[in-house]
Design a protein around this nucleic acid. Structure first.
Lengths: 207, 207
DNA sequence: AGGATTTTATGCGAGATGGTACAAAATTCT
DNA sequence: AGAATTTTGTACCATCTCGCATAAAATCCT
């Protein structure tokens, strides 16, 4: 994505960086995750990362650029996690439950408060005014749908689903379950309740 | 909700208001709807309502107070609309489709751009830091669930659903469909596609 | 040791932001 | 007509916001 000069070459010319850019990106993501894009100031980001503003600037560009990098990173982690959860063997219901468990781990990964999904909790708000964010959302959600659909198709070929089941619809519904869990987690719902709902919803989807 | 002195008494003592408070609240809601709570400035609100800042203050209190009033109004409209759509007679699938059609009308009611759901698009972001908003979300979503659940229960008693169908789970799933439609509408999905998804999702729920 | 190079740290500046003071304007009551 | 009352409009203030200029610090190369 960036030049690999940073990771490969260990001997850099000038004063060494005081902070790991990758770790800083994660802390910046945490800050955005809590307060949203507009609600997070550069002072918040500076405090979260431990970097002063010029360093933030040199490392990530301006505020929006930093947010987009955090968003891209989140998508990557979220999609990779879900693909891995869905790919592991076992019955369809187990695969789906693993995916929802994985999502819940992310949604409740905050220090004190439940933050839900980074995308749903922060990017959706900006989507109306920012076309780049909007496109990123559309692509990401369709990617979720596609992964679920593949899993449903595989299940149908194995006879785990009724023959008239529509993998595309079930996939979008599976994403819908994830969306409502993300929303409700950020709205104060208990993790155990959401887990239980996921379990029962899977029952309906695998009906 | 407020004193009815404003609406009933037509003769007020001092200089008359230049703007209708109710209409102004709707315009303010539009402004928040587009840019979110943090992203909307008092200048935005002033421009949207045509009121200058001191008038905004006198009418609605500070920015957060105005937002909370807009949020309460949206909940009222959204819940009333859905209850009416679900209550009208006919088969379960028709009731559900009416509810989703009604939601889509709201989500695509913006001037140019699709804004999705006001709650999902703006309040969810603030929920982590603002306990009052968070509680409002929890109550509202559970209210949606409850209304759907009543409708599913009525359908089951009429024999429209299989006996082993769980109205509570189906209700939360129905809300999940609404959530994902809200999210996707704001992310640029086409109204026709969302409508089609709703139709097919109803097929799964009414299994 | 000294120059070159890169990052850090302090701090500034132009503009936006939320909120308010104050006087002028528009109406009702006496 | 004039006092009382309520809203409007202008202007202002303290603070925050983003972004950057500039100098000091820490390393590598010769």
């Amino acid at each position: 994505m960036v030049q690999n000069s940073e990771t490969t070459e260990s001997k850099r010319r000038g004063r060494p960086r005081a902070y790991d850019p990758q770790a800083a990106l994660l802390r910046a993501m945490d800050a955005f995750w809590k307060k949203g894009y507009s609600g997070t100031s550069l002072d918040d980001l500076s405090a979260a990362t431990g970097m002063n503003r010029p360093s933030l600037y040199a490392a990530f560009g301006d505020k929006r650029s930093l947010y987009l990098k955090a968003l891209a990173h989140y998508w990557q982690v979220a999609l990779d996690t879900m693909r891995a959860d869905l790919a592991d063997g076992g019955p369809l219901a187990d695969s789906l439950m693993r995916a929802y468990e994985g999502a819940l781990s992310i949604y409740f990964s905050g220090e004190d408060e439940a933050r839900g999904c980074f995308v749903v909790g922060t990017a959706v708000t900006e989507a109306v005014e920012d076309a780049e964010i909007r496109d990123s959302l559309m692509r990401g959600f369709l990617s979720f749908d596609a992964d679920f659909k593949s899993r449903f198709q595989a299940a149908r070929e194995k006879g785990e689903l009724k023959g008239d089941a529509d993998p595309a619809v079930l996939a979008t519904l599976a994403t819908a379950v994830m969306h409502t869990i993300a929303i409700r987690a950020r709205s104060g719902a208990a993790r155990a309740d959401l887990r239980e709902f996921a379990r029962k919803a899977i029952g309906v989807l695998c009906g």
